[in-house]
């Protein structure tokens, strides 16, 4: 398996021990086989980005880790515990938090209820005042209906609500998709700040210019496999390859 060989020899992580280890991860939607053996690692304190074209399987990878894809196989270890067969509520309670691509803000809940919805799974979550410090807009709109917020505010709310829970491993699926440049910048600052606070982040991005401002390492997903991996310092050297992979 040549693909695996590439993926298993990523740039050495700058930071702590292994948090997430994904091996031969496969996933299906009904009959269609989407992931064909995904392999990668995330170490404590890192920001790791999955790049890849539309439909490559990035979202499916995050959902499979989170346990919300019906049929999956292979191995996903979180802090050395196998979670491939766990239900998503158990996985969340182990300290993984997920911010979905479609954001998932609830229309029948106001902003405060949306923010307070995910239960605290362990100690060490960000206190509310720090969250409002990161996202001042939210504080002013606590009583609005969740879906009345602008796209950027909804994205901030979707990130903010998983910071409270004490989960230390965050999976963010295309947090900049469809947002204005100044908001993208604000989200970039937020991710940098979260990294400083000690969060480990698995990011999915199409926008690798944005990703390069926050990521430590990259993996490239294509047709449900990891086909390449490199660190931020190797980014410049890999630029041509990347353009081919992403078709940009």
């Amino acid at each position: 398996m040549p693909d695996t060989a590439i993926a298993e020899a990523p740039a050495k992580a700058a930071t702590g021990g292994n948090i997430l280890q994904v091996r031969n991860l496969e996933a299906w939607y009904g009959e269609s086989h989407i992931l064909h053996g995904i392999n990668f690692d995330v170490n404590a304190g890192e920001v790791v980005t999955l790049l890849g074209r539309n439909g490559a399987g990035k979202t499916t990878t995050l959902k499979s880790i989170m346990g919300i894809i019906g049929k999956r196989a292979g191995s996903v270890k979180f802090n050395n515990q196998e979670i491939i067969r766990a239900t998503s509520d158990k996985i969340a309670r182990m300290g993984i938090a997920f911010c979905p691509e479609e954001r998932g803000i609830f229309a029948s809940l106001d902003v405060r209820e949306n923010l307070m919805l995910p239960p605290v799974v362990r100690e060490g979550g960000l206190p509310l005042d720090q969250i409002f410090d990161l996202f001042p807009n939210l504080k002013e709109r606590l009583n609005s209906q969740g879906t009345k917020l602008s796209g950027g505010e909804q994205q901030m709310l979707a990130i903010a609500r998983i910071l409270r829970t004490g989960a230390s491993f965050l999976m963010l699926d295309e947090p900049t998709e469809g947002l204005a440049p100044v908001i993208i910048q604000q989200i970039g600052h937020t991710i940098a700040r979260l990294k400083k606070e000690g969060f480990t982040i698995l990011l999915v991005e199409q926008n690798f210019r944005f990703a390069s401002t926050v990521a430590d390492r990259y993996y490239v997903v294509e047709h449900g496999k990891i086909i390449d991996g490199f660190s931020n310092s190797e980014l410049a050297a890999n630029m041509d390859k990347l353009h081919t992979y992403l078709g940009v």
Partner: peptide, 9 residues
Amino acid sequence: TLVRAFGIN
């Protein structure tokens, strides 16, 4: 699905 992925049974 999402509510469950937040840790609620």
